[in-house]
């Protein structure tokens, strides 16, 4: 494993942050503290973290309706995220966005998105922008198996390939688009196979193995940055929770959910770090304690923050 210790520990910390954040959101939402609705990333932590770890702060990502994990993986602060979920003025987007629309361009986060597949052309545009500006930036585009059946996927991947754009398409294949198992609406098993049609490399990785995701994405990011063009990385993973909190999950066999929860990404990674002598159990516990503390503070921050003043509702519509 040729990955710097600092990077390995950062990946551990960020996966934990996502896990803690999402689990807390689950509870807060059930208690009626959060307005609207939320889609949780629990179980998919290794994908966002492994794909963002090779990126620089000014590299771009686009996210999805299930976006909290991507924002955290790219360096988003828990307190400002939580404040946004609470609809408070101190949130990343002043309470205007909410769970599905967190954006923070300073960290290259071009937005979670309420429209399935809408991030795909937007990320492609960011990559085109980086190329035109010769900035050396790369874009990572997160999307699900469902979005891969949208027209934007085809149009964007063709353009990115034709112009050798600096972009990595990261497909989070969690097997279901809401209730619809992918095999019912797609003949092929691996979405990565579609890369052949666009003349770009396609790779399938275990999306619950953060090192595997990192290695595949690192290679793809390096390739993109070098000017060699896009890659399609398909990460096989699973969401633990229903499509959104409050939905009754009638469509997934409980044994399947159980099996995937047993294959969760964090515990094996912890073991790996200890076995390889990267960190001691005590060191990992210290990281965990710090994350839990940060999480507590984030909730406090959000709770204490004011709601946006009503008159601000009409600000930001126009430049």
């Amino acid at each position: 494993m040729n990955i710097p210790r600092e990077k390995l520990l950062m990946m551990y910390e960020r996966m934990l942050k996502i896990r803690e954040f999402e689990d807390r959101v689950r509870v807060l939402f059930a208690e009626g503290e959060l307005p609207g609705f939320v889609h949780l990333y629990l179980g998919e932590e290794a994908v966002a973290v492994g794909a963002c770890a090779p990126l620089n702060d000014d590299d771009y990502i686009t996210s999805t309706h299930r976006g909290h994990g991507h924002i955290i993986a790219k360096g988003g602060e828990l307190d400002r995220m939580m404040a946004e979920l609470y609809g408070r003025a101190t949130g990343y987007n002043k309470g205007k966005g909410g769970s599905m629309h967190i954006a923070y361009p300073k960290l290259g986060i071009l937005g979670a998105n309420g429209i399935v597949s809408a991030g795909i052309p937007i990320a492609t545009g960011a990559a085109m922008s980086a190329k035109v500006r010769k900035s050396g930036q790369v874009a990572v585009c997160f999307f699900g198996d469902g979005a891969s059946n949208e027209g934007t996927f085809h149009e964007s991947l063709n353009i990115a390939s034709a112009y050798s754009l600096p972009i990595v398409y990261v497909c989070e294949n969690n097997l279901y688009a809401v209730s619809t198992r992918q095999s019912r609406v797609r003949k092929i098993e691996d979405i990565a196979d579609r890369s052949i049609g666009y003349g770009m490399p396609g790779v399938v990785v275990d999306g619950n193995d953060v090192v595997a995701v990192f290695e595949a994405c690192k290679e793809a990011v390096d390739r993109a940055r070098s000017g060699a063009g896009p890659t399609l990385v398909e990460c096989k993973t699973y969401r633990w929770r229903a499509h959104f909190e409050g939905e009754v999950d009638t469509y997934r066999p409980p044994e399947e959910v159980e099996a995937w929860i047993k294959r969760e990404p964090i515990a094996p990674y912890e073991k790996l770090l200890v076995q390889q002598g990267i960190a001691s159990e005590a060191e990992l516990k210290a990281i965990k304690d710090a994350v839990i503390k940060e999480m507590e503070e984030a909730v406090e921050f959000a709770r204490k923050s004011p709601f946006p003043a009503p008159e601000t509702a009409l600000e930001d519509v126009w430049a």
């Binding site: 307005p35 609809g87 002043k94 709601f307 003043a309 009503p310 008159e311 009409l314 930001d316 519509v317």
Partner: peptide, 16 residues
């Protein structure tokens, strides 16, 4: 509605 996208926060949605 007032002429803004429908915002998320309850205090803002109520205004729009």
């Amino acid at each position: 509605a007032k002429e803004a996208p429908v915002p998320f926060s309850p205090s803002l949605e109520e205004e729009v």
